[in-house]
């Protein structure tokens, strides 16, 4: 294992922001040896994701010491792309509130976060595989799954090697065209985003599953020798397989379902309670048979807003 400084950026009153990567397998990141990159901590509150990356580093270090990491394959793990936001407890860039994951492929003469994205992409470009451990724009709890932006590159089947329950194929919207996942694909990296767990705290159980999934994937693609539990036989799902559950009423969101639950049509999933009278004003029932993929973490329900996602 080598800990390498990937890039740094200066600041007037803070210590320079230093972004480190942990390299396994090969000693250098030259062309032809860029096999897989795993990136997390692009936003300051992605705690579970940063924890996952740190645990991955720990596991790979042991595997490498046991001689089970191929010496001709380069594995790079970057646990914290955005230390400034993490340390100042901001989700986005502290001085201008911009999201690095809306700045790819970056621009080295542009604005600050465009430059950060460019410095990062300069390192990440050219990898055969790329994994981004990331979170949703609505705060909540996801069943761990792989998400791929559908740019017409046909590699979703390859994500089955993770052994996570779902592979979600998403049609990119306009704002997705500036994400790391999308730009990796444009520059010929097979990109996978992994979502999972709650973003309010470190979810160790989910982290363990995600780390194992990444090791499964590395094993299946000949980077390491790792023979642990193989996980699920993944289902490939598209937006058509996902049903958005909303409430027409606003109030307390009293949810009895959990992410990952299998539910039958008509089952009660949550109650909406009036914030003044305490009365139940509405019940949210499963619109179809399926598995709960996502539940928002906000204890309040806003009217006509997405509260849960259900896989049919």
């Amino acid at each position: 294992m080598k800990k390498i400084l990937l890039f740094s950026k200066d600041s007037l009153y803070r210590e320079n922001m230093k972004v480190y990567g942990y390299l396994f397998g090969t000693d250098t990141l030259e062309e032809g040896k860029k096999t897989i990159a795993v990136v997390s901590g692009m936003r300051g509150n992605e705690f579970t994701q940063i924890y996952e990356a740190s645990q991955l580093v720990k596991r790979l270090k042991i595997l490498e010491e046991q001689g089970r990491v191929r010496r001709d394959k380069g594995i790079l793990v970057v646990p914290a792309v955005n230390p400034y936001s993490i340390n100042s407890e901001k989700r986005f860039w502290p001085s201008d509130n911009t999201d690095i994951n809306r700045m790819f492929p970056g621009y080295d003469l542009g604005e600050t976060t465009q430059r950060v994205a460019a410095s990062l992409f300069n390192v990440l470009d050219g990898f055969e595989y790329g994994i981004h451990l990331t979170s949703h724009y609505i705060s909540g709890n996801f069943v761990p799954h792989v998400s791929i932006q559908d740019t017409g590159r046909d590699y979703a089947e390859s994500a089955k090697a993770f052994g996570l329950a779902y592979i979600r194929l998403r049609r990119p919207s306009h704002y997705d065209t500036t994400t790391l996942n999308y730009n990796w694909q444009i520059w010929n990296t097979r990109a996978y985003s992994i979502y999972g767990g709650d973003d309010k705290a470190v979810d160790r159980e989910v982290s363990e599953r995600v780390v194992s999934a990444i090791l499964n994937f590395m094993n299946a693609n000949g980077m390491i020798e790792f023979d642990h539990h193989r996980g699920f036989i993944s289902s490939l799902i598209t937006e058509d397989d996902i049903c958005v559950i909303k409430s027409s009423h606003a109030g307390f969101f009293d949810c009895s379902a959990r992410a990952g639950d299998y539910v039958r049509k008509g089952m009660r999933l949550a109650r909406i309670i009036d914030t003044g009278s305490g009365e139940v004003i509405s019940e949210i029932k499963a619109p179809e048979d399926g598995t709960i993929l996502f539940i928002q973490s906000n204890p309040l329900a806003f009217a006509d807003s997405q509260l849960m996602l259900l896989v049919r």
Binding site: Y137, I138, H174, Y175, K246, F302
Partner: peptide, 26 residues
């Protein structure tokens, strides 16, 4: 706040909106 409190996306990046989406998209 520049954006919509509690919502990650810039409001001027979600048009033409979606009457089945989040509150902001609606």
């Amino acid at each position: 706040e520049r954006g919509i409190p509690g919502f990650d996306l810039d409001m001027n990046r979600i048009f033409p909106g979606n009457s089945h989406g989040s509150m902001a998209e609606h």
